[in-house]
Write a protein that binds this DNA or RNA. Sequence first.
DNA 1: GCGACAG
DNA 2: ATCTTGTCGC
Length: 274
Amino acid sequence: MNPARPAFVPDASATREEMESLQREVAAVATWADEFDFDPAAVGPLRDSGSGGDSRQATLSPGSPSAESSLPLVAGVDQAFLDDRAVSVVVVRRGGTVIERAHTVTDLEIPYIPGLLAFREGGPILAAFAELTCDPDLVVFDGSGRIHYRQAGLATHIGVTLDIPSVGVAKGLLCGTPEADVDGRPEGWRTPILADDDVENAEPGERIGHALQSRQYDSRPIVNPIYVSPGHRVAVDTATDLVERLCDGYKLPEPTRLADAYADEVKRDVASGG
DNA sequence: GCGACAG
DNA sequence: ATCTTGTCGC
C-alpha cells in the first residue's frame, strides 16, 4: 500500500480547533471529479433493467477467471469495537474474488463526536491500510465523505491522506438536505443531497451526495435509503453509480458487507483469545 | 434554550 | 457503534 501523506493524518490528540482546521485543509485538497483509471462499469454487477435474462455480470462471463485480472481492486473498510479498542479491517476484492484482507486492533483515544469521526477512527484505519500489500483502485468507507460540515468526512479524510479514490456510504444523514422527500421510494431511486447553511465552503444548493434507495420491498416501505457521497477523486454522480453497482440486491455495498463480516470475525477471535 | 447529530 | 430472541417473509 502506498504511504500516507503525513500532513493529513488525523491526530486524536489535537484540539477541536486543530481538528476542524485540518478538515478544512483536507477539503481544500480533495477533488470531487473523476480521477481514476478503471472503468466504472467494471466494479460490479448491475442488473440490466432492459431485456431478458439473468445477466448479473457487467463485464465477465461467469467462470472466466482469466478475465478478472483486468478488473479494478475495490476495498471495503469497516470497524468493530471492543471496550476501548477498535478492530479495523480492509477487505479487497477483484471482481467477485477476495484477494487480500488486513486488520489491526488499536486503542481508541477519543469518543465519537459527530463531525470528528475521522479523528477517532482514522488512525486505526490507516494502521490497517499499512498492513495491506496491494494497492486498491477504490475504497468504500462506512460513513460520509463530502456530506459533512466541512466537506471532510471519514471517506474524504482517509481518501486524501492515502490519495486514493474513495466513496462514503452512510446509513444516516449527517447534514445537508435531500432535494426530494426520501420516504417510501422504490428500489433504484435517488435524490441529490444539497448543501445548506450547515455545510462550509459550498454554495447553498450545491449537490454534495445522494440518498439512494438501494433496497426496497414490494409491500411495505420499511427500508431507509443509504447516503452516498464522494470521498476523494470521484464525482457525486459517479460515486452513487459505483455504489449502486456494488449493492447487488442488498442495502449495503458488497465491500462494506464483507468488511463488516470480517470485522465481526476478528472481534470474536480477539474477545475469546489473544 | 431548542433541535440535530456518520460510527 | 454496542447490548440481544424470536420471528415474519421470500
